[in-house]
């Protein structure tokens, strides 16, 4: 079953064509990577899918229903979660509260004025922290943790809305090699457990070829290729614009 259908998506920033005629379909359980050099339009593409910007052309449908033009919060409530390239957490709140407030939002209790927050969803929050290996950091002020841990926390926050489709924008950007390895293992594990459909952008070739079962290549706002990792490796266009020597080494 197709989860996400993107049809002829285009984004024009007052004359600059950032995305041009992108069509793509994501099947349930697919782990789809978007490859592309800096400025290829990866983040703009994500922003169009999650409602941060409204595309100037085309339609995005999630599970058969159109989501183009909806606000980010409504798209999240439909079942699409997202993490960001740059850390996006609540730096002055504790790690526990970072997750707890997301639980509250997911359960539709954000507007309960007289319901004490402290006691809400403690179990669920602790389970989520355990899932991303942050149990010991529960009481730490989120902004004071290491970069890698903040990324883990962000993943936990995104998972609170119980998304079926998870969009990860450069999940390992800025991580040390060890953090990158741990983080990929964690993401792959969670995706497996929760049967998530993943759409992610990534710089690290190793990460892409480890996790993805399909890869699309974005260049100057256009989708130049889409296929299995083997097909992408073998694709001549892709080699010339992006992969360089990597495909040869790996093959």
């Amino acid at each position: 079953m197709s989860v996400l259908t993107i049809n002829d998506l285009g984004m024009n920033f007052s004359g600059f064509q950032a995305l041009d005629g992108i069509s793509l379909t994501l099947q349930e359980g697919e782990r789809h990577a978007i490859l592309g050099p800096n400025g290829a339009g990866k983040t703009t593409f994500f922003n169009c899918l999650t409602g941060q910007i409204i595309p100037t052309r085309g339609v995005v449908s999630y599970k058969g229903r159109r989501i183009t033009g909806l606000s980010p919060s409504r798209i999240v409530r439909r079942g699409i979660g997202r993490s960001f390239q740059r850390i996006n957490i609540y730096p002055q709140m504790s790690v526990f509260e970072n997750v707890q407030v997301a639980m509250i939002a997911h359960e539709g209790m954000s507007f309960r004025l007289f319901r004490k927050a402290e006691a809400l969803f403690r179990e669920e929050t602790l389970q989520m922290l355990e899932l991303v290996n942050l149990t010991e950091d529960e009481t730490v002020t989120a902004g004071l943790m290491s970069y890698g841990k903040q990324k883990q926390l962000e993943l936990a926050i995104a998972l609170c809305s119980e998304p079926e489709l998870l969009l990860l924008d450069e999940p390992t950007a800025g991580m040390s090699p060890q953090e990158t390895l741990d983080s990929i293992a964690l993401i792959a594990d969670i995706a497996e457990q929760r049967q998530l459909t993943l759409l992610f952008t990534e710089h690290d070739m190793h990460v892409v070829f480890t996790i993805a079962d399909r890869i699309s290549v974005l260049h100057h706002g256009e989708l130049v290729a889409s296929g299995t990792p083997q097909e992408i490796r073998a694709n001549d266009d892709v080699r010339t614009i992006y992969l360089g020597g990597y495909a040869d080494d790996a093959a």
Partner: peptide, 9 residues
Amino acid sequence: NRAEFIGVN
């Protein structure tokens, strides 16, 4: 931004 993306209006 993050608040929007946990589904908060």
